[in-house]
Simulated scan of single mutants.
Amino acid sequence: MKSAPVTLALGGFPVLCTRGEELQHRLHMHLRAGDQMAVFFANTNFVVRCQGLQPAMAEGCLIINDGVGVDIATWLVHRKRFPQNLNGSDFVPGFLRELGRDARVFLFGGKPGIAQRAAQALREDFAVPVVGTSDGYSQASDNEGLVERINASGATVLLVAMGNPLQEQWILQHRNQLEARLLIGVGALLDFLAGDKPRAPHWVRRLRLEWLYRLTLEPARLARRYTLDIAVFLALCLRRGKRVSEG
């Protein structure tokens, strides 16, 4: 009998307690078994913006911890820490490279041209087979046609980069029509891969200060997220405590 994955409740979401190698193995198993799984990375913005989506995420979803803010809240609520920080911008490219030719990837999201440049980077730098792309603007205006294009591409992995909560809503709304096995919300990953937005230097990421680096680059867009929304996030987590929302 398969044991249930170990999770910690945070802001009403069951967040998986795992390491990168274990998560890679779990996703491999879903691909090999032909099971569909949606994967979401829970940073502070996810927890605040995706409230109300918990019932739709109750089955067929893995929610992964992402960022120092989530670690702080988890310690306050549970007096425990996640075994490893698994932000999607680092985990997803490495996972796709490890999959190699077993992955057929479709990229969806970003401004016009972003997905195409991200696809080129994945092919050249990570040897990832990318079978199709769509921006998140004009090419995404016809959802039915987009789903047909994704399915026709033979994609087994779909990366959706629309930000929270739009990417989560889109995946949850359309997953029953999609044939891809792994549906992953990736936030700004395509912008990073395309070179449209720079990643923080490795030493900054090791210190877990990438949020501060991004704030200095985009203060107008991110100031609320890293000030007022952090307070909302912590209050929400403390109020929900160890409960997982069911509706």
Rank of each mutant, 00 (worst) to 15 (best):
M1L: 14
K2T: 14
K2E: 14
T7N: 03
T7M: 06
G12V: 00
F13K: 03
P14H: 09
V15W: 01
V15E: 06
L16D: 01
L16M: 07
E21Q: 12
E22P: 04
L23E: 09
R26D: 13
H28T: 14
H30F: 06
L31K: 05
R32Y: 06
A33G: 15
G34I: 04
G34W: 04
D35C: 15
M37V: 12
M37W: 13
N45Y: 13
N45F: 15
V48F: 05
P55V: 01
L62M: 13
I63N: 01
I63G: 02
I63T: 05
N65I: 03
D66T: 10
G69P: 00
D71M: 14
L76H: 07
V77A: 01
H78N: 07
R81I: 08
R81K: 13
R81Y: 13
R81P: 03
F82I: 01
Q84V: 07
N85T: 09
S89L: 01
D90S: 13
P93M: 08
P93T: 08
G94I: 07
L99H: 09
G100I: 05
G100Y: 05
D102V: 00
G109L: 01
G110S: 03
P112L: 02
I114L: 08
R117M: 12
A118Y: 02
A118I: 02
L122R: 00
A127L: 14
A127M: 12
V128D: 08
P129M: 00
P129N: 07
V131C: 13
V131M: 07
T133L: 02
T133A: 11
D135S: 05
D135L: 00
Y137S: 04
D142S: 08
D142M: 04
D142T: 06
G145Q: 09
G145P: 09
V147C: 15
E148K: 15
T156H: 05
L158P: 09
L158M: 02
L159W: 00
M162G: 11
N164R: 12
N164Q: 14
P165S: 01
L166Y: 13
Q167M: 11
E168G: 03
L172G: 10
L172T: 02
H174L: 08
N176Y: 11
Q177G: 15
Q177M: 12
A180W: 06
I184G: 06
G185Y: 00
G185P: 12
F192S: 10
L193D: 10
D196C: 14
V204Y: 05
R208P: 05
L209Y: 11
L209E: 07
E210N: 06
E210R: 00
W211C: 08
W211K: 06
R214C: 08
R214D: 10
T216E: 11
T216Q: 11
L217T: 11
A220F: 11
A220N: 12
A223W: 15
A223R: 07
R225Y: 06
R225C: 03
Y226P: 08
A231Y: 11
L234T: 09
L234P: 04
A235G: 13
A235N: 12
R239I: 00
R239E: 10
G241M: 04
V244W: 04
S245P: 01
E246S: 15
E246M: 10
